[in-house]
């Protein structure tokens, strides 16, 4: 039955989220095309560049926000409004219903986050490539094309430079980044679901209660996450020596990214356990 639930959940959610995320792809392609032209080469084009940058940023934020909000609304509508009478009377367990929504919601949220990062990277790449072409920097273009041709004056490889800045080799950095995005997406989706489930415990104004729970959980998790990520790096902020500032960024990334992933994994566990407990408990449709 979970397979069938997943099939219908996928069909239902994709109807909205597929075009929305294709919008990010389209926006990226348009952005890359614009950046590869000479349109911004003159100083007079600065206001236009700022305007387009603002438009792009706002659009991506909107697409990302809508994706997450739609995932929450879809969960709420399917399970706790009139449609709940259909889903809660299907011959399936409540946990199966929950899992189908969690899998599909987390998948789309992750796709959205990855597309957003890839979109920013693609635009950065297009801008860098065009700038290198204008300034006639062959090695820079080569580096951007295959990432390994360029050798700096002190014969340090591009990988090594990357590691010095980001603390990881490019491949490991991408893996860690993807892991962080996926875990934070799952935790965000679960946080919304948990808030909605907590809202159902209240007799009246359940939707308002859900929003209240979401805000409360969000604030608490943000404070905790900040403490977990900043406290271990406190020595980096306090140490003013030259050696320390040289390795500040790489040390920061090295400790922050794994700490962020571990924090998200702990939050996922807590949110998941609480959600499963609540969804198994009872349903009281209005």
């Amino acid at each position: 039955m979970l397979k069938k639930l997943l099939k219908y959940e996928w069909k239902s959610v994709s109807r909205i989220l597929l075009p929305l995320n294709l919008g990010i792809v389209l926006l990226t392609i348009i952005g890359c095309v614009i950046l590869s032209t000479d349109i911004f080469d003159s100083e007079q084009a600065l206001p236009l560049a700022l305007l387009l940058f603002l438009f792009y940023t706002l659009s991506v934020i909107t697409f990302t926000g809508i994706t997450l909000i739609y995932i929450y609304v879809h969960f709420y509508k399917n399970l706790f409004t009139a449609e709940g009478y259909l889903f809660h009377t299907l011959p399936v367990t409540r946990t199966q219903l929950f899992h189908s929504k969690l899998f599909v919601g987390s998948f789309w949220c992750s796709i959205n986050s990855l597309l957003t990062v890839l979109s920013a990277a693609a635009l950065g790449f297009a801008a860098g490539f065009h700038a290198a072409a204008v300034d006639n920097i062959d090695s820079m273009q080569g580096l951007l094309m295959d990432g390994s041709i360029a050798k700096t004056a002190d014969r340090t490889s591009a990988d090594f430079i990357f590691s010095e800045i980001f603390g990881f080799s490019p491949v490991v950095f991408v893996i860690v980044l993807v892991l962080m995005l996926v875990t934070s997406c799952i935790s965000s989706v679960l946080m919304g679901y948990l808030s909605i489930l907590l809202g159902q415990l209240i007799e009246k104004f359940r939707l308002a209660a859900s929003i209240g729970f979401y805000m409360a959980i969000y604030i608490v998790t943000q404070v905790l996450a900040s403490i977990v990520m900043i406290v271990p790096n406190l020595h980096l902020f306090l140490d003013n020596s030259d050696e320390s500032s040289k390795y500040f960024l790489s040390s920061f990334f090295c400790s922050m990214l794994p700490a962020a992933i571990i924090t998200q994994l702990i939050l996922i566990l807590i949110f998941y356990a609480a959600s499963i407990f609540l969804i198994r408990r009872s349903v009281n449709l209005e």
């Binding site: 709940g84 009478y85 809660h88 009377t89 009872s282 349903v283 449709l285």
Partner: peptide, 9 residues
């Protein structure tokens, strides 16, 4: 009816 059908506890 809602309790029989399981939409109300």
């Amino acid at each position: 009816i809602k309790m029989i059908t399981g939409v109300l506890a």
